[in-house]
Design a protein around this nucleic acid. Sequence first.
DNA 1: GATACCAGTTACTTAAAGGATACCAAAAAT
DNA 2: ATTTTTGGTATCCTTTAAGTAACTGGTATC
Lengths: 112, 112
Amino acid sequence: MLEELTIQQKIKYLQDTLYVISGKWKLLILMSMYGGTCRFRELQRSVEGITTRVLSKELKELEVNKLIERKIDNTYPVLITYQLTPYSFSLKPMVDEMITWGAQHRKELSKP
Amino acid sequence: MLEELTIQQKIKYLQDTLYVISGKWKLLILMSMYGGTCRFRELQRSVEGITTRVLSKELKELEVNKLIERKIDNTYPVLITYQLTPYSFSLKPMVDEMITWGAQHRKELSKP
DNA sequence: GATACCAGTTACTTAAAGGATACCAAAAAT
DNA sequence: ATTTTTGGTATCCTTTAAGTAACTGGTATC
């Protein structure tokens, strides 16, 4: 499948991907949610250093990209939760490769 | 190997990786070099829109990360070339996953 | 009645990334 | 002889990402 793509297409898809996951916080938020965290304040405490403003913005972007879902429970008072979508798990092979490369890269750089 | 890592370690490695490849130009430069481009002005023409200042900075960062090498040919006049290192090819599995995910993600977003 | 939790928003500021332009000295092409 | 090419560096400027802080409206607790 990759062989069929021109270099320009590859670049475009690569940039799409980077756009979705890059930035200081997106993957941290996803990781935290992967660990079970699902409420706004809870996420704010769990993702160290993030502010409400930024967290709010990031959550919206993740939602636009269908990686999370914002659910409003019509209990009293309303309960808002964020959940990873099944689709979000499609990131796993890529994220795993990124972790693997990063780990390996540390070793490479520390070589003489 | 990945299973042995704590979530904090995973995050750290992930961020290392993002740090190395993110930004507007790094992967474009690598792709262009993968296509055979190897001289400064040539790269500047090939990577549309990049300025000398930024290209210079990016090349230095890629070199620090051992992904490219700057070679000075002691011909007359000196000839400077940039070359992908063998190490740089270790990025391939990850980059391929990123391209694949990006391609698939376009489709996902265009769904109703 | 004051304080604190929840889920954010708004307006403003700072820091980092990137862009525009000019310039250098040597060599090559016109 | 003048222009162009080479591999950059030096300044200055703009854009974008992220941070600060105050505030909203509602609930719940002390």
